[in-house]
């Protein structure tokens, strides 16, 4: 199995606070990897460093698209990182609220557009061909996830669970190799969580993805993950298979022991 994403001791300091300290991740192709830890452990900060929202104070982020050479993506713009095949969702859903479901997903297709702005504006034949291609893909994707009927609804008018799903679909539409999900099950009831578990597995297989996610729902994490990293106060305190983690005393002390949901 080859590595898709590797972080070399990335550290993020905000003023005097070290949010993430020398984190080393190694994420392998086609795996579902989870990042867990109590609130404020630095999980989202790690995501932000990987996706270019923050530039790590120290350390490097390296990404290897399947079949390609390893590239150093430290400090690259988020849009460039997205183009290379890393897509993400956000902890507090960041949809384009006033735009339709359809537009939300179409926007994610924009990054692969080859036509320049003038051919696009003038709707020249090669742009139209690209546009049709995009429309086809989006329709297919939306039908697959049962959002096609809702395509003309405003994103903000969808129920919460659907919004989370739409956000994942939007990330999928960028055609990622690595998908980062920031608390995809937050605020979901057990039934919705179960559906989500199934959904994540399904997209992983169908689109041949590697998935890296932050999650608090332990039943989801334990069921679905191939590998788990545990973070506390910005430091990795454990990693291993779900079984390892469940029996790790440090993790239980730091995290599971105080979390009633677990």
């Amino acid at each position: 199995m080859s590595t898709v994403l590797k972080t070399e001791s990335i550290t993020m300091r905000f003023g005097g606070v070290t949010a993430v300290n020398e984190l080393k991740l190694n994420i392998e192709e086609h795996k579902i990897v989870a990042l867990i830890g109590p609130n404020g452990a630095g999980k989202t900060t790690a995501f932000n460093m990987i996706t270019g929202v923050y530039t790590p104070t120290e350390g490097k982020v390296k990404y290897t698209a399947p079949g390609k050479d390893e590239v150093d993506i430290t400090g690259k713009r988020p849009s460039d990182i997205a183009k290379m095949g890393i897509a993400r969702t956000f902890q507090n859903i960041r949809l384009f609220k006033d735009l339709s479901v359809y537009e939300n997903v179409m926007i994610a297709k924009h990054l692969h557009l080859k036509s320049d702005v003038f051919s696009a504006t003038l709707h020249l034949p090669w742009y139209n061909a690209e546009q049709r291609e995009m429309e086809k893909d989006v329709e297919e994707l939306l039908r697959k996830v049962d959002l096609w009927e809702l395509r003309n609804e405003k994103a903000s008018s969808l129920p919460y669970g659907q919004q989370r799903r739409l956000e994942i679909v939007r990330a999928l539409a960028t055609g990622p190799k690595l998908l980062l999900l920031d608390e995809p099950a937050a605020g979901m009831n057990p039934k919705e969580t179960a559906e989500l578990t199934e959904f994540i597995r399904q997209i992983r297989d169908e689109y041949n993805l590697t998935i890296f996610m932050i999650e608090h729902h332990m039943d989801l994490v334990m069921e679905i993950s191939d590998w788990i990293y545990v973070l506390d106060f910005g430091m990795e305190i454990a990693q291993g298979t779900p079984a390892d983690i469940q029996n790790n005393t440090r993790v239980i002390e730091a995290y599971l022991g105080v979390d009633e949901d677990a």
């Binding site: 988020p78 897509a87 956000f90 006033d98 735009l99 924009h110």
Partner: peptide, 17 residues
């Protein structure tokens, strides 16, 4: 429009701001 709605999300979807 994506930039207008949410710059951070737009950028994460590959729209160069």
């Amino acid at each position: 429009k994506a930039i207008r709605e949410d710059e951070i999300a737009a950028e994460a979807m590959g729209v160069g701001l």
